[in-house]
Design a binder for these strands. Sequence first.
DNA 1: TATTCTATGCTAACGAAGAAACAACACACA
DNA 2: TGTGTGTTGTTTCTTCGTTAGCATAGAATA
Lengths: 222, 222
Amino acid sequence: MLTKKQHTLLMLIHDKLKEDGVAPSFEEMKVALELKSKSGIHRLINALEERGFLRRLPNRARALEIIKLPEDEDTSPASNNLFRPEFGNRAPEVDPNTIEIPLHGKIAAGTPIEALEQYENIGVPAGMLGTGSYYALDVDGDSMLEAGILDGDRVVIERCDSANSGSIVVALVDEEEATLKTLQKRGPDIALEPSNRDFETQTYPANRVRIQGRLVGLLRQY
Amino acid sequence: MLTKKQHTLLMLIHDKLKEDGVAPSFEEMKVALELKSKSGIHRLINALEERGFLRRLPNRARALEIIKLPEDEDTSPASNNLFRPEFGNRAPEVDPNTIEIPLHGKIAAGTPIEALEQYENIGVPAGMLGTGSYYALDVDGDSMLEAGILDGDRVVIERCDSANSGSIVVALVDEEEATLKTLQKRGPDIALEPSNRDFETQTYPANRVRIQGRLVGLLRQY
DNA sequence: TATTCTATGCTAACGAAGAAACAACACACA
DNA sequence: TGTGTGTTGTTTCTTCGTTAGCATAGAATA
């Protein structure tokens, strides 16, 4: 899975993170690996990210986070199970790559978020999240049907207060009605666009609309 | 993840919070970090919030809450949660309720599953699975569009060899073409029904179709 | 053997983000 | 209304991450 260099760097980052709580800068890694240029580090980091060991914020200083370590230096040559004749089975195993986020309730077109009395947390795959702040909502209704968001789906929302046109957002209108809609900026106004012919796009002055988050993921159970 | 300054400030806030029960004001933080202006603090706080370590209420004095610490030195967060109930939010934390299942490749209408060279496992929330055997596939194409299954979605499949009419299944036709379709039993025949007007229902004698699994979940990232 | 691919190494230049300092303004609360 | 507090903007400098181009070694492949 990893080359020696990649492995070395990953462990280095891991140690630093544990020790200082702060990830090393490219410069520091360069020195630690006895390189004379940062570009090598850059490539290694990319490789590690691509392979799912790291997560990062691009263009942010020291914004590295380790997602997993390469302990599964898998055993025997059996790992070369090239073939799974019948979709070879694997014992499901617990893994730590889940993040818990709060489930805040239901969201539907035209009604406020119906809050839950008590908080409930749900786990979502870490890969679905970045480093922001997230919560989940259960979708009530069909207003986003044609965007593949069905009644009963659970959506993962990243907290934010602005978004680009075309993003699907949780928008609070007049501080009272929260809906899940596609955002379109129209000059001074904001249009909230459903994805269902039976519903109509609504346009408001920007000051009546507050973005509460951006759709980043969806979970559905059948 | 954090720069030194960010880390220092975070720990400072954490300590104050633990000590006094009250978050420090910008002014106090300014002094503690030996800065001569508050704007620096403002930026640091923004960075911390962006990275998900802090939450705050805008325009509220001292309304800071720590949601996680670097490398989870644990906070025994209960102590902090005594006030600011309006935050009522829980820190994202790693939890063990994920099951790893293998990702077997892509599935599209009319083509065989495109197998991955190497196994890759993905984590899915344990609540999505029962006790059976599961795997995941990435959906390629729009044949189930109207059922809310989009190109690029990841579907979770429970291995099984039969299913009821109306279920969405992975069906292998003539041992070569695997597709994701709605199953309809029609006497001796089996109909595989897409959810897209641009595709047609296909009907085969039952012996040409083998069910390989049943759709039980869906994950989507935006 | 010749070819290609991958991982790696180096230089150099660029641009983006972090940080410090000063200033002015807005808001909450008493 | 005034004080404490948080928010924004500008400027300047530093640190850091990104990219392009070129080179080398080893492994895999033809």
